[in-house]
Computed example of a mutant assay.
Amino acid sequence: MRKILFSLLALVLAPAAAQADGELPKLLTPFDKARLDQLDVTVTSALAEARANGSPDDVAILDAALAGTPLPLASGYDPNGNWKCRTIKAGGNPQLTVYPWFACRISEDDAGWQLEKLTGSQRTRGLFYTLSDTRLAYLGAGYVNGEKPRSYGQDARENQVAVAERRGKNKLILLFPAPQYESKLDILVMER
């Protein structure tokens, strides 16, 4: 995980990916830096709890969501468009919760790639920043359906940080370590 944090601090932009502008180290709060620094420990602990205590059907969904190895995010990869997405909460109480599919969208403007969860009661909106050829950082903010969407940094209690990986031709996963509510690890699975 230290490698990720050093990548965050060095922040080298890969061609044609996320179009990060070098601002990530300046944007991260100390709390969020610590969450990202503990990503590997958090993932290991949360997944062990989830697999030990989740129903067999939910564990199968979890394992399918995490299947695959990280693929390049540059070289002509275009994530723009509509996605179906679901959240899986691992660790904590309850120790494994799998939500149904909702709608998400990735779009691009001068700031780079942006994610927005469009349906469901719990939503997120934020920007991606390049960490490596196969990983992006996500800085976003949570909000509830009916509220005005927030941006990262507007309300520290709603800040969300994740590491995103492409795990298949049409699959992305975002790993949210130590979310501020309910679980040890949130996984946003995106497919199309």
Rank of each mutant, 00 (worst) to 15 (best):
A10Q: 14
I88R: 02
A16I: 00
D57M: 13
V144E: 15
K84R: 14
G140D: 04
A14Y: 07
W83L: 03
K171A: 08
M190W: 00
R123C: 05
Q19D: 13
D32T: 04
A20Q: 11
W101I: 05
E49R: 12
I61Y: 09
D155C: 01
A162H: 02
E23A: 11
R166M: 02
P72R: 07
T42R: 13
D186Y: 04
R125A: 12
G68T: 07
P177D: 05
L71I: 07
P70C: 00
A178H: 09
Q114C: 03
A164F: 01
K117F: 01
E147K: 04
I4V: 14
R105F: 01
R157V: 04
V43Q: 15
Y143T: 07
K84N: 04
L66D: 08
W83M: 03
F31H: 14
R150V: 06
Q38R: 15
I88D: 04
V59R: 10
L139K: 05
Q160V: 08
Q114A: 06
A14M: 09
V189R: 00
Y77Q: 05
C85E: 10
D57Y: 12
T124A: 04
G140Y: 01
Q19W: 08
S55Q: 12
L188C: 02
L8N: 04
D133Y: 06
E158D: 13
P94N: 08
T97F: 10
L62I: 13
P177C: 07
R35W: 06
D78C: 03
A103L: 10
Q95I: 02
G76T: 00
L127G: 03
P30D: 10
S55Y: 08
G168I: 08
F176T: 02
E108W: 02
P100R: 08
G92F: 00
K148L: 12
S132R: 07
L185H: 01
V98N: 10
I173A: 01
F102D: 14
G153P: 06
S121R: 14
A50P: 14
D78R: 09
A103M: 05
L73H: 02
